[in-house]
Design a protein around this nucleic acid. Structure first.
Lengths: 394, 394
DNA sequence: CCACTAAATTTACGTCTCAAACTAAATAGA
DNA sequence: TCTATTTAGTTTGAGACGTAAATTTAGTGG
């Protein structure tokens, strides 16, 4: 509380109601009361305040009309009341996404750019000009822009807004938020891409009451995200959940980070393809980036019962399970969610995962934690960075 | 917020003030205002409320008397206003501790008992009767008893009050809180012993503004505790921070938990002594429990430059550093604190720890995290469980 | 002995939520 | 058709809270 206190209560209750609406779509005021545990009087007070500001609207949709009594009038966020700009920065690609108040992606634009051929100043210049160019196409939304979000692979310090290291850049310790903050005069949120995905999953209605879980993203690399106490956890130095660089072994194969034995070096696409190439005949590939098609073929081999491929995924599963066991021991989470392009092979790894966990932990420590796959879709990072940026909408 | 709201504000501000007093000893009301960011008016209101209840007292100590102006009157918690009973359950030993409102241990009693020769009913019976016998010696305090706390080695579910597994008991999934709650008609807190120590350290004034750190306790076993966002984190299943059973290797020496390659199996007293016995001539010992004296001698060997002993501690340090690296990657904490009887050899392990971390993580991920030793004292578990029990004093 | 200073208290005010009373808008059944 | 019933939502009045500003208290310094 503190400070002018009681006004802070109102502010907190406002965001509670806004969040309830964001998660549970259009609902009646009664339900908001039930969800937020606020009295009907308070719900009325706050919702009419919000309606006055244009944040929410009554939605005259097909009324459900159950039973008797006064029919409930549904209200929902007015998606157009505010918007945010999400930027996903990857190697040689900048993806710009316009998000509305409900977290939907309204528009998208992909720009090819040599992300690695910049110094700090020119990189920020490019980001600002690309962002301005993109927003110029949506002049109405530009006026209602609340905040920006940037998602990037690699290690970030979210508190400082610095990219500590990223495969997308050829330099270290680059601040990416200040220039955009000045150019757009609004807050800019920086986040690791896997953290974005964790946050996006956390915002799914079916995860609404799951307050402590870990997300593992398998793709070109292996990333992670932690939801702790219902919030995305970024740690004191803002770089939490770098699951891919926890270790399976103190020796072991080379990881992209430069060290050896990282979980990533066993489970990421590049690692699987590298290990597969050693034991079977596969088309050559850019070592760092086997294509989705190539990875799909490799997975299909295992599905079809190829022994070497099956063994490969089983091994990767074991390494993954070993890493998950460390998460279970350290954090005792409700569940561990596995997603990313790499879930395509979840079933092929599952037995290995279970074996890896069982080998590492006694049943008492594994407890009732679930290891769940989560279907991958390309826009999850975008959804997540937009949701993170929307935090700034009070 | 929620509910009867504004009363909850008051409650929150009350505990803020109580906590400020608990941490910063006797202070003037002005300082409380500065610490809690409450207005002087509010501080006056709440402190006089608390004084009326006897929770706090004006302390007429040697006034600091700086400069002019009305002299500040120091207030402090009245340590005798309430008390808690802390119970530490270890193998064949029950330690009972009476704690006052300031978290001091007022009295202590150690009972020898065959903790492993019980079923759930008789164990709880014994705990209740021992606790009642102990409190009978302090009839005045017994009337002001607020809550109980139980600390135990092993895996616990703090939410359910269950001991899932413990070396001190010969059964699994034992509830230890219900019987005591009924007998004393007050809340009972169960906690893992290493978590207690983490909480005790967190409550030290010099850790007051350290809100995200990990504690590693090295002793007969290796335990852990996590302070996340300024709170002791116990995870969804209430068993977080079992650092000792995160892994150094998927093969490796046998751990007390039954699995192989746990950090504990390299760093705990029993592991060090076992490994040392293989390469040098040491007096035989109960394999599970080398004595403090024996461990001291082993450490002294390394201090004196014995090559084999030095190598041993260096190796243990490497395993520890490897495990710490996983914590750094996953949680990005401000610091990692190493304590427990095993800190006696911290200096001998330090180079190994640093090596283990450097081998595992690129400098960007290690960041500015400190690895600090914390001097061990026997009553830290007690301090911690008492502090945890005191949470129930609103 | 009085001006000055800093700590603590009192007062006046605005904000908040909630319970309870009330209004609104529908249905079910006589 | 009409009335009792039911559920949703609003209004009102009371109680609690914290703050700013004014005031009191209790010292120091010259």
């Amino acid at each position: 509380m503190k400070k002018t206190d009681t006004e802070q209560i109102r502010a907190a209750n406002r965001v509670d109601i806004i969040n309830a609406l964001r998660v549970f779509g259009p609902v009646a005021r009664v339900d908001i009361g039930r969800i937020t545990k606020l009295s009907p009087a308070t719900v009325t007070a706050i919702t009419s305040e919000l309606a006055g500001e244009g944040v929410i609207e009554e939605v005259n949709a097909p009324t459900p009309s159950t039973g008797r009594g006064r029919p409930r009038v549904l209200i929902d966020l007015n998606p157009n009341h505010a918007c945010v700009l999400g930027i996903k920065l990857s190697i040689n690609e900048i993806r710009l996404m316009l998000g509305d108040l409900k977290g939907n992606i309204l528009a998208e634009s992909v720009v090819t750019a040599k992300t690695q051929a910049h110094d700090q100043a020119s990189l920020n210049e490019m980001l600002v000009s690309q962002a301005q160019r993109f927003m110029a196409d949506y002049p109405e939304q530009a006026q209602r822009l609340v905040s920006l979000g940037i998602a990037i692979q690699g290690f970030v310090d979210v508190h400082a807004g610095d990219v500590v290291w990223s495969p997308a850049l050829n330099m270290r310790h680059v601040n990416l938020t200040r220039a955009l903050e000045e150019a757009f005069n609004c807050p800019v949120e920086l986040a690791n891409d896997a953290n974005c995905i964790a946050y996006a999953i956390h915002k799914q209605p079916d995860y609404a009451d799951c307050r402590d879980f870990a997300v593992i993203m398998i793709g070109y690399g292996v990333g992670g995200g932690l939801i702790v106490g219902g919030e995305l956890y970024s740690g004191h130095f803002g770089a939490a959940a770098e699951f891919g660089h926890t270790k399976f072994s103190h020796e072991g194969p080379q990881c992209a980070c430069g060290k050896r034995g990282c979980i990533e070096a066993y489970v990421a696409d590049y690692a699987l393809y590298r290990d597969a190439s050693a034991v079977m005949d596969l088309p050559a590939t850019d070592r760092r980036h086997p294509s989705e098609k190539q990875m799909g073929r490799l997975t299909q081999l295992a599905v079809d019962g190829d022994a070497a491929a099956s063994r490969l995924f089983h091994q990767a599963g074991k390494a993954l399970g070993f890493g998950i066991a460390n998460i279970l021991a350290l954090l005792s989470p409700q569940k561990v969610v596995v997603t990313g392009p790499g879930v395509r092979a979840f079933e092929q790894m599952q037995a290995g995962i279970v074996e890896g966990i069982d080998d590492s932990l006694i049943p008492e420590l594994i407890g009732r934690a679930d290891i769940d796959p989560y279907p991958w879709s390309l826009d999850m990072t975008g959804k997540g960075i937009i949701a993170l940026a929307l935090k700034h909408f009070r």
